[in-house]
């Protein structure tokens, strides 16, 4: 069994990872999709629902 100290550190790391994914997941997909798309779309077309 890991010690209390290690447990604390693990749960802190999980919490930080969760926060990063919470705010970073959608930007990550948009970044990956935007850079790998063929042909590359313009940014305004990406964000606006109407353009």
């Amino acid at each position: 069994m890991p010690s209390e100290d290690t447990k604390e550190r693990i749960s802190k790391a999980v919490e930080i990872g969760r926060t990063i994914l919470h705010y970073g997941w959608i930007p990550l997909i948009i970044y990956v999709g935007f850079t790998r798309s063929n042909p590359q779309p313009s940014l305004i077309k990406l964000i606006s629902p109407l353009a």
């Binding site: 959608i26 997909i29 948009i30 990956v32 999709g33 935007f34 790998r36 798309s37 063929n38 042909p39 779309p41 077309k45 990406l46 629902p49």
Partner: peptide
């Protein structure tokens, strides 16, 4: 925005439902 690889974004709007609140959802698929 791209077919191969597939990249698309979705804007979903829902309102006036008896059970759920009105909502806006933005989705992205790669």
């Amino acid at each position: 925005l791209s077919m191969n690889p597939l990249f698309q974004v979705t804007h979903s709007f829902a309102l006036g439902s008896q059970t759920a609140q009105s909502s806006y959802n933005f989705g992205a698929i790669f």
